[in-house]
Computed example of a mutant assay.
Amino acid sequence: MIPIYKPYMPQNISDDITEILYSGQLGYGKYGRKFESQLQSFIGCEYVLSVSSYNIAMQIVLSTLGLQFGDEVIASPVSCLASNQPFAVKGLKVVWADVNPENGSMCPDDVKSKITINTKAIFHNHFCGYLGNIDQINELGKSYGIPVVDDGIEAFGSEYKGNKLGNVGTDVTVFSFQTVRLPNTIDGGAIVYKDKKLYKKALLIRDYGIDRTIFRTPNGEINPDCDIKLEGYAGLMSDLNSYIGTRQMDDIESLLVVQKNNAVIWNCKFTNIDTINSLKMTSDSTPNYWVYGTLCKNKTQAIKDFKESGFYSTGVHINNNVYTVFDNKVSLQGVNEFMNHFVAIPCGWWFENK
């Protein structure tokens, strides 16, 4: 059966990995800087930092934005649990926004109706690599003076108006490089900032709040005059993981082309089928086709039929508003309709659709 996900790993990397393992430089170093440079070039944005995991990326973003216990954020329940669990860790109040049942993207009108004086941020998830209404959500943030974070956990390489996600005008963008993503660094992530000051702040928060340029005295001792003013994390990506990222970035364009070609074939196959519709894309967007999304009249039967045809299929995620940890089990009509019909099938680089 063709899998829904598959970790990518470049060929002929064992010698380089061995060299790194015995180099004495295992922490963030030359490969970390190279990986970030590649990300900057690919995304088209200067203020990019790599991190050790997606979870750490989210925690850094929450700290960078100054969010505190009890603050209110608007987010989509149609997303990976990893996207929303950091809110619970930080003690934030999550207000769930409804989604468009045709594609699972956040509904701008519903977001607007839920903005209050207590709203501190909007987290805009791009479900399974399918981009949402970026301009409309960003305009809400601008109008109300609220930062918007593009949650690109599954959307690295997706495009909006010809630009890569991370370079579409949003305040902050978060990516995951966990094993089944592209690129994957075994575990890792990245954050993109539009604002240089927030980026500089995040660089400190990523490394325990330490300014490494003054952290040690000329003789190598910790400098007592180097004050730590910010909360921080052990968020630096190792050079081993970074190296894997650099090699994956060498191949990223060709891998995404395969996925887009596979999607074209799926589009044709579902054109005249009444029981299965391709997920409707938002205007001016191109998914990365991490998976291929469909809306099926009978979800259970469709999953069974796809599997019997040799394609692993799944609903991918469960809507997060069912979880007690978020203390907000509100029922949302668009969410319910979308989750009752959404089925993802393989679209990845590991097979050629025919």
Rank of each mutant, 00 (worst) to 15 (best):
S158T: 12
V343L: 12
E19A: 15
I115H: 06
G70E: 15
F270Q: 00
N321S: 13
H124Y: 01
Y47P: 02
T246R: 03
Y47G: 03
N12F: 12
S63H: 05
L62V: 03
E337Q: 14
K197G: 08
K201F: 09
L62C: 07
A121H: 04
M1V: 12
N133E: 15
E72W: 02
N340F: 08
F42T: 07
W96A: 11
I13H: 11
N288W: 05
L21A: 15
Y233M: 08
G24Y: 12
A302P: 03
T275M: 04
F215G: 04
S37H: 14
N55D: 08
L332I: 13
D225G: 09
Y28W: 13
H317N: 13
G348K: 00
G310T: 11
A97Y: 02
A57W: 00
Y31A: 09
S242Q: 03
G220N: 02
I345T: 07
S254K: 02
V61E: 01
D16T: 13
G315P: 08
L39T: 07
S53D: 07
S143C: 10
V343Q: 10
F326K: 05
I122H: 02
S176R: 04
L255Y: 01
K120V: 05
K197H: 11
Q85R: 03
N319L: 08
T286A: 01
P86M: 00
D171K: 06
P147V: 00
V330E: 11
Y54W: 06
D195E: 12
Q248P: 02
N100L: 12
N167L: 10
Y193H: 14
N320S: 13
D305H: 11
H341S: 15
I252A: 00
T173A: 12
A190M: 02
E46A: 13
V95C: 11
C45Q: 15
Q85P: 00
S158W: 09
K297Y: 02
Q178R: 08
T170Y: 10
N138F: 05
D98H: 09
S76K: 01
F175I: 05
I117D: 14
L49S: 05
T286G: 00
E159K: 11
D327Y: 06
T217S: 10
H126E: 06
T179Q: 08
G104W: 06
F156H: 02
G315Y: 08
Y323W: 10
T271R: 09
A75F: 09
K201W: 11
I191E: 01
S76E: 12
T246M: 04
N138Q: 10
G348L: 00
I265K: 00
L279S: 08
F306V: 09
G32W: 04
N223V: 10
I74S: 06
S331G: 09
E72N: 05
S242L: 08
N84Q: 07
S313Q: 08
Q136P: 04
M339E: 14
L236T: 01
F306S: 08
E308K: 13
L256N: 00
R212N: 14
G235F: 00
K93P: 06
G29V: 11
D135L: 14
E72I: 02
V94C: 03
I122K: 02
S105G: 13
V48L: 11
S313I: 06
N163K: 14
Q40S: 15
E72V: 11
Y160T: 10
V149A: 05
R33Q: 15
T185D: 04
V172D: 07
Y292G: 04
R181F: 05
Y160I: 09
A202M: 04
T286P: 00
F311D: 04
